[in-house]
Computed example of a mutant assay.
Amino acid sequence: MASSEFVGLDIGTSTFKGIQVKGKTLTAYYQAAAPGVSLLSENPNDLKQISDSLRKFFDDAKFRTRNVVTSVPESQVFTRVINLPQMGEAEIASSVKNEAPQYVPMPLEQAVLDYEILGPSETQSGSVDVLLVAVPKALTQKYLQLLQGAGLTPLSLETETIALSRSVVGDSSQPVMVASIGATTTDISIFSGGALRFTRSIATGGKSLERALAQTFNLEMGQAAEYIRTYGLEGKLEGKVMGAIKPVFDIIVEELKRSQAFFTSRSRRPISRLVLVGGTANLPGVLVYLAQALGVEVARGNPWETAISIPGNFPREYLEEFASSFAVAAGLALKEI
């Protein structure tokens, strides 16, 4: 299995992204508009539409393989870092099984449960941090059917946060916060000591900004999206666009502040920087706005700087423009299978 080729596939609400690497060198990439149908829909026709669109995506992309590693939406996954007394691996495995029911908000027989030992705790001396992940079995089955219906062979499913740890976090010894602002959700995670230490997801994303602007000025959603891409959080156009979307964007800012304060109070280590990924990372003025609000360095996540090299015959300017959008797919492509 170690030699299997595969594509890191990010199935977003607005766009599909695919990345293929050899070692840590980019060999293929593609992105295209998604049908705009929620992956969480229970309507068989909606899911067939996504499968058909994925099949076309791979037909157009011309990847060398239809093996895929893909991610499940962070908002639908239960992820928590728990503290356990220092003990051997066998004892940790037993403790996780015993402790899981009090942390996982669903019957364990309905979930796929996994865990990873992160190492000595950064928030509680004399204990070990363990990452606990629970995914509803119904969700994994839906993904498998969706992918197989598109003629794809899924090799692995994992969370977007774990993928981002490979592509944009790097090997910083200082705590780093990552905000993935997607179309419908914002996923916040904090990494320290080379491991995930905190994660949460909120139901506010790029579409919320578009709705706010569309309702304020009676625009079509497409028009609103174009205005936001053009003016964002800058004061141009008499500050009208910024004024309309700021109250919604500040919901994301407040969650970032709360996450920052919680981690810092527990670990006694300040967040060194914020890495922004997702389509909203390219919003004009967003880096300055967040830096002023949080008091830390803010940068767009760029897998081409952190993890993957671009060959000379690839369009670097295009890939740099969409670097933060490709971050999840890049992290999935770097998974060791």
Rank of each mutant, 00 (worst) to 15 (best):
S121H: 04
E320T: 14
M1N: 09
V176Q: 02
Q20H: 10
E226H: 12
S192P: 00
Y30Q: 13
P247D: 11
S121T: 10
E91H: 07
G243D: 10
R268W: 12
G36I: 06
D187V: 05
M87E: 13
I11K: 03
M106S: 12
T70P: 04
A299K: 14
S53K: 03
V275I: 15
G193H: 06
Y115S: 00
P154N: 07
L132I: 08
A150G: 07
I188P: 00
T13F: 11
Q31W: 12
E234A: 11
G88V: 08
A111L: 01
P136R: 01
S267R: 05
G331M: 05
A100N: 09
S127G: 08
F57E: 05
A34Y: 01
G312H: 11
I117N: 04
A281S: 14
A134Q: 00
K236L: 12
G222P: 10
F249V: 10
S173Q: 14
Y231H: 14
S180A: 13
N83A: 11
Q49H: 11
P303Q: 04
A2Q: 13
T159G: 02
V68D: 00
L287D: 09
F314S: 04
V253A: 13
F217M: 15
T230P: 03
D10V: 02
G8T: 00
L334P: 08
A330K: 04
A34H: 06
G206I: 01
K142V: 03
A90L: 14
T153G: 06
S38I: 02
E226R: 12
R316N: 12
T230G: 09
A34V: 05
I310K: 06
E254Q: 14
A2C: 07
L26W: 00
I228K: 09
L334T: 05
Q31V: 09
G206R: 01
L276N: 04
I188M: 02
Y318N: 15
A261T: 14
Q31P: 05
L283E: 03
S208L: 06
F249M: 08
W304Q: 08
R55G: 08
R200W: 07
I92A: 08
R55P: 04
G149E: 05
V37R: 11
E99W: 11
G126K: 07
V21I: 11
L196Q: 10
V96H: 02
T185D: 07
G12V: 01
E99M: 11
T199C: 06
S51P: 00
S324E: 09
A61M: 05
K240N: 14
E42L: 14
L144T: 14
F198T: 02
S51R: 10
A34I: 02
T70H: 02
A293W: 04
V112P: 04
S165I: 00
D52R: 13
G18R: 03
